[in-house]
Amino acid sequence: MSGQTQGLGARLEALGHTIFYWMLRLAGQTGAYLLLWPVITTYVLGSRKIHRLTLPYLSHRFPDHGRLARWRDTHRIMLAFGRVLVDRAWLGLRPGAALQGCLEGQDELLALAAEGRGVVVLIAHVGNWQTAMAQITGMQVPINSLMHYQEEAVAKHYFDLRKKEMPFKIIKSDGFMGGLVEATAALQRGEVVTIMGDRYAGGPATEVEFLGAKVRLPAAAYSLAAATGSPVAVLLAAKTGRRQYSMKLWEVCRPEPSDRENRRRDMQKWAQRFADALEEYLREYPYQWYNFFDFWSQ
């Protein structure tokens, strides 16, 4: 019985995708946005799962919100996420489609790259990270991206839809030493290495305060930067309008090499700065957080 239910669920999901693609073809981005509203509303009213997925974040970000406000928050966050997915599909289906954006802090980022010591660019699963990565191409140096296979699949899909070559080389984080050997070599050549600073997927980690509670964050980026003398730049993108996004350099730090016994403590210090930057971002864009799992248990 449950197998039949799962089969029906998968068929309904596939049907939903097909309807959205047809709507995109017939009525463009605006039509698909309009369709999102009743679909998301139905899910928020009828699905418990969707609330389970958003609750860990919303309860930390809005601890004072009651049941009704929490439902409204879930609606807003899912609608924002749905719009990002629609944008991604729309960019793929319409050859002339484009999003307009700006990068606040571009000069500083270019200056960091021009130092020739490599740059560790930390990004996160907020806003539209694929757009962020697509926009850091004017750096005059090659860009590498340390990625888990799931993120790699999403990034490839994004650029396949755009019928564009990926503007960066992927370093697989599930390889030897989590891809850190290749990332180190790239930084030594003065290249850019982007790393997801939020999701922990193995390797060195550290615990920081984030939205009022302790959370484990990946820490390899800070060690990489300390060993190679590269600066760390936190770059986060946000959707700010129907066809607009904004990218901003939220934080720059320069981790220094530390003794073996102080290494963990220092990594925690740098990771806390990333967490603080992420909190600041979420104060401005509270509904663009797309880690739909219990982030505080990772």
Binding site: M177, L180, T184, A220
Partner: peptide, 13 residues
């Protein structure tokens, strides 16, 4: 560990 691997790459260079 992997953090030492990073430092070792730099030291070999």
């Amino acid at each position: 560990d992997s953090l030492d691997a990073v430092e070792l790459v730099v030291l070999v260079q």
